[in-house]
Design a protein around this nucleic acid. Structure first.
Lengths: 192, 192
DNA sequence: TTCATTCTCTGAACACTGTTCATATCTCTG
DNA sequence: CAGAGATATGAACAGTGTTCAGAGAATGAA
């Protein structure tokens, strides 16, 4: 079981999720192809199991950011940690969000109530409670978190490859975009 | 040539790009599988050709939005048109952004200099010139457009499926997020 | 018109893929 | 020790993208 996941991880990190064949995973784990079906329903659910693991990694990463007094400072740190994760482990990141693309009841519950997203929601909720943030939509912290998460996720997807005019290091650019967004949902000025 | 693209489109819109097999496309176009290789280098470049077509559709959609006096009003309309396109033609949208995920020099030039993105950049540039927008990163209109595009793209990707707590109609929620972002890059108040 | 060249399509083949299943082999329980 | 349940195998099936020799049609030149 664990050795299969290990093999799957090594293959996925090497050739990407969509080119990771069941047969190669089985080969690396020391099994015949059919044997994997005793442990996973099919290829997809094996890859999903791997993605779940990556969600935990991302969650742990976010959980380890410090908690400064100011809500928008905290959100800035969370966004930074998120972007770092995507940059450092792009294949892991892809895994998580390829999974998101496939609707699945259990998964959607997981992503909302488990680590990554809920941390952002929490920070937004606290910001609203302390009146450091303002909610224009009237839908509360979830709505604010949705906007922020979308922004950060979108930035990763539209990465450096495709924006040659922006080139080089996107970090300051991304920081500026997040800062601008935070300014738009803050009652006070955002620190630079 | 045209009939192949037509067949490809019909298959892709039916079963999605990743499940659209070359053989089914050939079957529908009235060719044998191998014949397609006289017109396209391989399956991928055939799908790419289809995606290019969709970029044009998206571009036309954006080009048809009115041009109000205020820059942030215009950006709001552009964002709305973008979200509409993604909602109305999800398979087309996926096609465009699956293409974006694969680095390709020619494509990156295309996406930056051709319709969709450049329209947003233009609107940002005009806003900056008229001092209706403010650029915190010092990287000009491209940077502002990058942030906005990321936000909108991210919102589409993290769609309703996965955010059960938000449920139902995301439109007002999205409008609020875009408005918040625009507020963050505007010098004046954003109209509600 | 006739010949030669170039283009285009076919159909078979190759090496893959995910998945199923009868068979065999282990491991644990009574 | 016998039997039951779990787990692995290896062959098979239907599907995939891609290549390629050969057949035909189209084109241009003499």
């Amino acid at each position: 079981m664990g050795e299969i996941i290990d093999a799957a991880r090594s293959v996925v990190l090497e050739v990407g999720a969509e080119h990771a064949s069941l047969r190669e995973i089985a080969r690396r784990a020391g099994y015949s192809p059919g044997a994997l079906y005793n442990h996973f329903e099919n290829r997809e659910s094996l890859i999903n199991a791997l993605a779940m693991e990556s969600v935990q990694v991302l969650g742990a990463q976010l959980q380890s950011v410090p908690t400064p007094g100011n809500a928008s400072d905290r959100l800035m740190l969370l966004a930074g940690a998120y972007l770092d994760f995507a940059e450092r482990e792009p294949e892991r990141y892809r895994l998580v969000f390829d999974l998101l693309a496939v609707p699945s009841a259990r998964w959607s519950e997981f992503i909302v109530h488990a680590y990554p997203f809920s941390l952002i929601v929490q920070a937004c909720a606290e910001g609203l409670a302390r009146r450091e943030l303002v909610d224009r939509s009237g839908r509360g912290a979830d709505a604010l978190a949705y906007g922020l998460w979308s922004l950060v996720h979108g930035m990763v997807m539209l990465s450096a490859h495709h924006l040659s005019s922006l080139q080089d290091d996107l970090t300051p650019l991304r920081r500026a975009a997040v800062a601008a967004h935070l300014a738009g949902i803050s009652t006070t000025e955002v620190s630079p």
